[in-house]
Design a protein around this nucleic acid. Structure first.
Length: 288
DNA sequence: CGAGTTTGACCGGCGC
DNA sequence: GCGCCGGTCAAACTCG
């Protein structure tokens, strides 16, 4: 590597001695570098500004959600167990409770309210697509469909059929607020390897997977389109107010943001050309 | 013919 | 206790 660099600078030096226009090129390179530095500074400022905006909006949203939950307290009492789980306040610690034999009907089959791990995804799809299929690479078997009260679009119920012992379930329903969004709620964790990982570049459904933590299936908060993020909420005893908003992991979010920016910059031909020119100028500078 | 889907019925939790 | 509602079951059906 070092020897290659030396060779390059040697060649550039030779060119410098031969080409009388090099000084002009150097000046142009410097100008380009300065321009790029200024642009970089501007972008950094914009990023800071956006981050500040995001922070303030996040605060406002938390306030709003707290107010809403206070206002709707009587309603939230209904379906208590469900709301606790969907709201992220999962206190189940993953323990499977045995059901009482004294219960009649089908209760011997499976305890109803087992949700040791709940996560959700928003998938951007065509509103005309009524299939409610979220391609996440796993194998699912549909066992039911139901129209719920607060959403005119039906909710589909799936069980993982890849392994007979796998008890993971998912519910898929189109968002009532945004017909372009399909909300997939996963319950439980797979006890088998991923059979067929999805193409992350396409998203699960050739759409955009948007992370969303939920307080109810129909109030999914989505952000940062095109980002693929696992919003799995581990066992937690925190309340909604204490939880980080939308289940977004900030370091991971920033990492993804940097990755995105790096990707778009490397794809930009003008940028790479300018960068190459700037670097070669610097090397020239150094050798002089 | 087997695997997956559809759909009406049923069950249990919860609020009133 | 009753009614509403979400979740699940299972027979019938579809499809490859």
């Amino acid at each position: 590597m070092d020897s290659t660099m030396e060779d390059t600078s040697l060649n550039l030096n030779l060119n410098l001695n031969i080409n009388p226009q090099t000084t002009m090129m150097k000046r142009q390179g410097d100008e380009e570098l300065n321009r790029m530095s200024a642009e970089n500074k501007k972008l950094t400022e914009m990023l800071c500004f956006m981050h500040e905006n995001y922070k303030s909006l996040e605060g406002k949203l938390v306030d709003l959600m707290q107010k809403n939950s206070e206002n709707r307290e009587p309603k939230l009492k209904k379906r208590k167990a469900e709301d606790e789980n969907y709201g992220g306040a999962i206190t189940n610690n993953g323990n499977i409770e045995t059901c009482s034999n004294s219960d009649g009907g089908r209760s011997w089959k499976r305890p109803r309210e087992i949700r040791n791990s709940v996560s959700s995804f928003c998938v951007k799809t065509d509103p005309s697509d009524t299939s409610l299929i979220v391609r996440d690479g796993y194998q699912w078997r549909k066992y039911g469909q139901k129209v719920t009260r607060d959403n005119p679009s039906p909710r589909a119920y799936y069980k993982c059929s890849f392994a007979p012992t796998c008890t993971v379930k998912k519910k898929v329903q189109r968002s009532v607020d945004d017909p372009y969004l399909v909300v997939a709620i996963y319950e439980g964790e797979h006890n088998h390897p991923h059979p067929n990982p999805p193409d992350a570049s396409l998203g699960f459904n050739q759409g955009h997977i948007i992370p969303g933590s939920i307080s109810s299936p129909n109030s999914t908060i989505c952000s940062s389109p095109s980002l693929i993020m696992d919003s799995t909420q581990p066992e937690s005893c925190t309340t909604d107010a204490e939880k980080p908003i939308s289940g977004i992991d900030m370091p991971a979010f920033q990492e993804l943001l940097v990755e995105k920016m790096a990707n778009s910059l490397t794809r930009n031909h003008n940028f790479t050309t300018a960068l190459a020119a700037a670097i070669s100028t610097r090397i020239l500078d150094h050798d002089l």
